[in-house]
């Protein structure tokens, strides 16, 4: 499965990056490909391209706040989880996407 994800948190200092790290590792461990965009204190990094999004099967939004440029994902399957869930049990988040 091709996954794209966006992580964000209130201060953009720590959780955004922890969640990204956890999701990337969990997805790969479960045999998926994943690209995670971080929306943190340094702005948007590892930005998802139109191509990334076009090839994705599902979108994970792990954010405690509103995600920027959300309209990019219109018409796609979106799974929203609290950012802390992505840190606590990323495998469950990924496994919950189904196949």
């Amino acid at each position: 499965m091709n996954i794209v994800a966006v992580t964000a948190c209130p201060t953009g200092i720590a959780h955004t990056y922890m969640a990204a790290e956890r999701l990337e590792k969990a997805a790969r461990r479960l045999g998926h490909t994943i690209k995670v965009e971080t929306q943190g204190a340094m702005g948007i990094e590892n930005e998802l391209s139109a191509d990334d999004i076009a090839h994705a099967d599902v979108v994970i939004l792990a954010a405690g706040i509103a995600v920027r440029n959300r309209d990019r994902f219109e018409g796609m399957r979106i799974v929203e989880v609290p950012v802390q869930d992505a840190i606590k049990d990323p495998e469950r988040v990924v496994a919950g996407l189904g196949t």
Partner: peptide, 13 residues
């Protein structure tokens, strides 16, 4: 600094 902190946050996982 922000970059360092981001890297550190990832590493803590």
């Amino acid at each position: 600094h922000l970059r360092t902190i981001a890297a550190l946050s990832r590493k803590l996982m």
